[in-house]
């Protein structure tokens, strides 16, 4: 996506990249800079929410709340070390809150495990054979490996963003990712029993 540059955006040697500059301007109250941040992160955040909340209007409500909450928190914070990690933490907590509202008796551990897709992609999409096979054997992996693979490849998230969602370090994400792909490779080579 082409990002429309915010007004008054100047190069700053102290800031690592474009996102950091946008965050700095947005923290100072620049709404145009925040709109640019929104356009940069909307696809990932909306995909993350949309996969887990099947109702479209509800998903849009949640996405709007996530970005409003992020803006409000930015105004009170002097420095945000990693905006991607930060906003995905907000998104994760908001989705868990949504689950909690729907199921008030469920415990937190169960709710966090519900950060999976509400819809079964295999049943809802007309997939080719390879894709269908991939998703079927994905279910055979341990839950943490399934989560990392889905977030990484189906939702197109970076390791840092995945780390924020499942509350682990990026290094741990790389290890889980390596194991998961290795397991998938073996399972894909193995012919089906029936």
């Amino acid at each position: 996506m082409k990002i429309r540059p915010a007004k008054n955006l100047k190069s700053n040697a102290g800031l690592d990249n474009y996102t950091d500059q946008l965050v700095s301007l947005a923290s100072a109250g620049d709404q145009k800079a925040y709109e640019s941040l929104y356009r940069e992160f909307f696809p990932k955040i909306s995909r993350f929410v949309n996969y887990r909340v099947s109702h479209r209007e509800t998903a849009e409500d949640l996405v709007a709340e996530i970005f409003v909450k992020a803006w409000q928190s930015l105004q009170g914070s002097s420095e945000v070390s990693s905006f991607p990690k930060w906003i995905f933490t907000i998104a994760r907590n908001r989705v868990i809150d949504h689950y909690r509202t729907k199921r008030p008796t469920a415990d937190l551990f169960e709710l966090e495990n519900l950060l999976e897709y509400e819809d079964n992609i295999v049943n809802t999409i007309d997939l080719d054979i390879a894709s269908r096979q991939f998703l079927e054997i994905l279910d055979e992996l341990p839950s943490d490996q399934q989560q990392v693979i889905r977030l990484k490849f189906l939702e197109d998230l970076a390791n840092e963003e995945i780390a924020a969602i499942i509350d682990k370090t990026p290094g741990t994400i790389r290890v889980i990712q390596h194991r998961a792909i290795g397991a998938l490779k073996k399972l894909l080579k193995t012919p089906p029993n029936n």
């Binding site: 709109e35 909307f42 909306s46 479209r56 819809d119 999409i125 991939f134």
Partner: peptide, 21 residues
């Protein structure tokens, strides 16, 4: 394997970016 995973299609309707903004 990763290339295969990245090319799995999804039919989830995208949310309205402008309306949400």
């Amino acid at each position: 394997v990763a290339d295969l995973a990245w090319h799995i299609p999804t039919n989830k309707p995208v949310l309205d970016q402008t309306a949400v903004w």
